[in-house]
Design a protein around this nucleic acid. Structure first.
Length: 586
DNA sequence: GCCGTTTTCGGCCCGACTGTTTTCAGTCG
């Protein structure tokens, strides 16, 4: 049972206990622990016997710890099974739609006989649903829109689609509304999550209503869901919902903090404010004794007033960032500007879409000082993987392009398959001639966990395998990650001096944020690369930087923040000496 | 349910919106 499934059980328990009228605080404890479990950097099932380790997780007391142990041991929870039997199955289904909570869902099933989303749509369209207590026309109309949006495109959108969409809307607003200031995105997009549910925009302006009106009239807007004086909500052509809120300059800080979240982080900040005799809301901090409201132009000022350093949006998940901030131990996170090179790219020698020279020129335009050209190895027959002979020609071509391409250095490399038994797709002699060797799992992806773990660790033992690329091979929303003991792989990486790739390609984002966090704590060193197959894909590096930051990754820990000469001498070292070289940079 | 440099018992974030609620319930972010 993985963390997602365990979290699901506790979220279900929260719903059932709400329906039973149990204590709201008990319900909140379950909700909170469900979120906490989803953000864990390790699998609960792996540590279920270690009661001390479980109890150290926030929200884990006696009762929840024993429930987790029961789940890990049996795959089931007696209490969960009992409650599931007590309530109709449709309740949890209906609750997936925004606007429907536990109470409404139960009434819908009991009084209207709705069992699934199709039945829900019918009931909403016919007007029957609006007759339920405390629903009404307006709520029903909103629920129907949410439902149709969900049926059209699933519930969350990859950051690789959402961020460009947000930037297009922002550019259009700036152009049509000179009055707009401080326009920025907030929410999970600003926190850099790999998928987002909607786009939250904020700005300040002298005439807010005009800005809202402009938003509603943008050509890309398909549907206007709400339009007030300071808040507008629209659906753009890609199906994404965009919310815009306008405020005055004096209150921007509190509003930005509030709409960036996460909710858990906000709650912790409010609890902290409370202990200091203040109340925090989206307008500012109120002194409870005097009732005086203090405004803040930026987030730094609020954190400072609460006795904390600024906490980067990517860290705001209530995953230890407040404790670290208090101790003055927040990491100096990697920034986009730190990234000098890209160590994973493809050309039309294999499955890339552009010639070597074009890719080099594009990388330079994107601000890279060097790239590794890493086309595929023979087992990748569908991608035209290079034979040993072709690899040699490829290397000659890369070295020639390196000599003739101004403003950028090229490394001759390969993205080589790690075969099913952990052996490598090229002989050692061929690998020894390359500047850099990436190793990837591309086939036999359905191996069991032990086999896959042994396979990858065996490959890392090779003195030639410099970087382990996209560890889990997942494709977000399309292909599940391989079964693998990530912690064992990270420990082996440290032991062997193998670098772990943070693959920045939006469909992959592999390692994912929680993996990066765990690997970092074990001392792993990373390469942050785009896996570009087209010239414009070098721009994907920003998504990798966001995931790295979510994983608390410092700039010094990423080898392609090194200048070219230093990177070259890093790669020239025997693997066993490399980690020590990087660690000294802090 | 959990949690504690004010507490091992008594707390547990805050405001907006919608509805049919004459003082609050449900839901969301």
């Amino acid at each position: 049972m993985d963390n997602r499934q365990i979290a699901r059980v506790f979220a279900d328990l929260a719903v059932f206990l709400t329906l039973k009228g149990d204590s709201v605080f008990k319900v909140r404890a379950y909700e909170r622990v469900a979120e906490s479990i989803e953000n864990l950097p390790f699998e609960l099932a792996d540590v279920a016997q270690d009661e001390k380790r479980l109890r150290a997780i926030p929200g884990f007391g006696e009762a929840i710890t024993s429930k987790v142990q029961e789940l890990a041991a049996t795959g089931k929870l007696r209490l969960h099974e009992e409650l599931k039997a007590e309530f109709p199955a449709g309740v949890l289904t209906l609750m997936q739609v925004p606007g429907i909570g536990p109470k409404t869902a139960l009434k819908a099933v009991q009084e209207l006989g709705i069992k699934d989303l199709a039945g829900l749509e019918q009931s909403l369209a016919s007007g029957a649903f609006a007759q339920l207590p405390r629903v009404g026309e307006r709520n029903a109309a909103n629920i129907l829109r949410h439902l149709r949006a969900r049926m059209a495109q699933g519930d969350r959108v990859p950051i690789g689609d959402a961020l460009p969409a947000a930037e297009r809307v922002m550019a259009a607003l700036r152009q049509r509304c000179p009055d707009v200031r401080n326009l920025t995105y907030a929410g999970s997009l600003r926190r850099g999550r790999e998928t987002v549910g909607d786009i939250d925009l904020l700005c300040t302006a002298d005439r807010p209503a005009e800005v809202i009106a402009e938003l509603a009239s943008l050509p890309s807007v398909r549907d206007v869901m709400g339009k007030g004086d300071t808040k507008g909500s629209v659906v753009i052509d890609s199906g994404l919902q965009v919310d815009l809120r306008v405020t005055d300059d004096a209150s921007l800080g509190a509003l930005l903090l509030y709409f960036t979240g996460s909710q858990r982080h906000s709650i912790r900040l409010r609890e902290r404010a409370q202990k200091m005799g203040m109340s925090l809301n989206e307008y500012g901090l109120t002194d409870v004794a005097t009732g005086r409201l203090e405004h803040f132009e930026n987030e730094e000022a609020i954190y400072s007033r609460l006795g904390l350093p600024f906490i980067a949006p990517e860290l705001r998940e209530d995953a230890g960032e407040l404790e670290a901030a208090e101790r003055g131990e927040l990491p100096r996170l990697v920034e986009l500007a730190d990234i000098r090179g890209d160590l994973h790219s493809h050309t039309d020698w294999t499955d890339g879409r552009a010639p070597l020279e074009e890719m080099a020129a594009a990388a330079r335009r994107h601000g890279r000082q060097y790239i590794a050209v890493t086309d595929h190895s023979p087992s990748q027959t569908v991608s035209g993987g290079l034979s040993v002979e072709r690899l040699r020609e490829h290397t000659v071509a890369v070295r020639r392009a390196d000599a003739t391409s101004p403003g950028i250095r090229l490394l001759a490399g390969t993205e080589m398959d790690i075969l099913a038994d952990g052996s490598l797709d090229y002989p050692d002699a061929a690998l020894a001639e390359l500047d850099i060797v990436l190793g990837s799992v591309h086939g036999a992806m359905d191996q069991d966990r032990d086999t896959m773990t042994r396979r990858v660790i065996r490959a890392m033992a090779s003195p030639h395998l410099d970087v382990l690329a996209h560890l889990t091979t997942r494709l977000i929303g399309r292909r599940a990650p391989v079964e693998i003991d990530a912690e064992a792989v990270f420990k082996a990486a440290v032991e062997t001096g193998t670098v772990l790739e943070i693959n920045a390609s939006p469909p992959r984002l592999d390692l994912k944020d929680t993996h990066i966090r765990m690997a970092r704590e074990l001392g792993v060193v990373f390469a942050l690369s785009t896996d570009a197959h087209r010239p414009e894909e070098f721009g994907w590096v920003r998504y990798g930087v966001e995931q790295a930051r979510r994983g608390w990754c410092e700039g010094w820990r990423v080898i392609n923040t090194l200048p070219f000469e230093e990177l070259s001498s890093f790669l020239a070292l025997p693997k066993g000496e490399r980690y020590a070289r990087v660690a000294r940079r802090d």
